[in-house]
Simulated assay, not measured.
Amino acid sequence: MTKPHVAVLDYGSGNLRSAVRAMERAGAEVTLTTDRAVAQEADGLLVPGVGAYASCMAGLREVRGHEVIGRRLSGGRPVLGICVGMQILFSRGVEHGVETAGCDEWPGTVERLQAPVVPHMGWNTVEVPEGSSLFAGITDERFYFVHSYGVREWELETNNRTRAPLVTWAEHGGDRFVAAVENGPLSATQFHPEKSGDAGAQLLRNWVQSL
């Protein structure tokens, strides 16, 4: 049986080696690439991300990754964003008073967490909605987070013609934020599944097996 082909988008941000190894362990054939054609044609596209929102968006635009993401999604081809790779899928990010336009696949603002201690660093539980495919077979587990910013309000409106996205939430210091989203071909996690032990490995296997 042929393994699904996953392209890991190299736009100068993210724990690329960890992402590649995690995808391989999850059962995928993996290519680390800046090539738009390779990223476009793979069975799945992984968009990592670490660091500042503005610099990640600048790197993404430099390799025209935002176009690749948009074209894949318009054709129903799966994309998975991780950490800042999730954040850039929203409309905008605000850091230190500077607003940066994102990919605008989902409405919403990435902003500083309103918690006594920031960054949010370490293991945390998540609130998973019923029917989740990403979290299938995973219950009462913790995932590894490293971030100071997040999406604190889910803004996408749905209607009777479209299936509502599945939004997973987490809480840090009394502040709730989006921990994961499943929306048709587009999925994302604020936490790092590649650093989240057996639970994270199962989540990545679930995604790879869905390709």
Rank of each mutant, 00 (worst) to 15 (best):
V117P: 10
A37E: 14
T125R: 15
V50A: 05
V181M: 00
V94F: 08
E155G: 09
T31W: 09
V68P: 00
T34M: 13
D198T: 12
H147I: 08
S74K: 15
L166S: 03
E141Q: 13
G65T: 02
S187A: 12
G44E: 00
R142W: 11
R21L: 15
G65Y: 02
A179K: 01
K195D: 00
S148T: 08
S210R: 13
P165T: 05
Q209T: 11
S91H: 14
A42E: 03
E153H: 14
R61P: 01
H192N: 00
K195F: 02
T31N: 06
W207S: 00
N124F: 09
S187T: 11
D43I: 03
H120Y: 11
A54R: 13
V167L: 07
A37F: 10
G93H: 09
P129Q: 12
H66N: 11
M86Q: 12
R142T: 13
I138N: 05
G173K: 02
P193G: 01
E141H: 13
V118H: 10
S18E: 07
F191W: 03
G75F: 12
E111Y: 10
P165G: 04
Y11E: 04
L204T: 00
A201S: 12
P4L: 10
I138A: 09
L134F: 08
G65I: 03
V68H: 01
R71Y: 12
W169Q: 03
H5I: 13
P4E: 04
F90P: 04
M23N: 06
S148C: 11
P185Q: 01
R77T: 05
G97W: 08
L60H: 02
E24C: 11
S148L: 10
G122S: 11
L113R: 06
S91A: 15
Q209H: 11
T189L: 02
L166W: 03
G65M: 04
S13V: 15
E130A: 15
S187W: 11
V68I: 09
L60E: 03
N183W: 07
L16Y: 09
R161N: 14
V47R: 00
M1G: 15
L46K: 00
L203H: 01
Y149D: 09
R36P: 09
H192K: 02
E155Q: 14
N206M: 00
D140S: 12
G108T: 07
A37K: 13
G65H: 01
D43C: 01
C56Y: 02
M86D: 08
E95G: 05
S148F: 07
E130R: 15
S18D: 11
A7G: 09
E130Q: 15
Y144G: 07
A188N: 01
E127R: 15
Q87E: 13
R176W: 07
V117C: 12
P48R: 03
V98G: 13
M121T: 14
G131Y: 08
D10W: 10
E67I: 06
D10N: 13
D35F: 09
P116W: 12
F177T: 03
V8P: 05
W207T: 00
T125N: 14
Y144D: 10
E62L: 13
G200Y: 00
L32S: 03
P4K: 06
K195V: 01
S148P: 06
T189C: 04
G70C: 09
D140L: 11
A101Y: 12
G75Q: 14
P129S: 09
V38R: 08
G85C: 06
N183V: 02
V50K: 02
Q40V: 06
Q209C: 10
D175P: 04
M86V: 10
N124H: 11
M1L: 15
L204H: 01
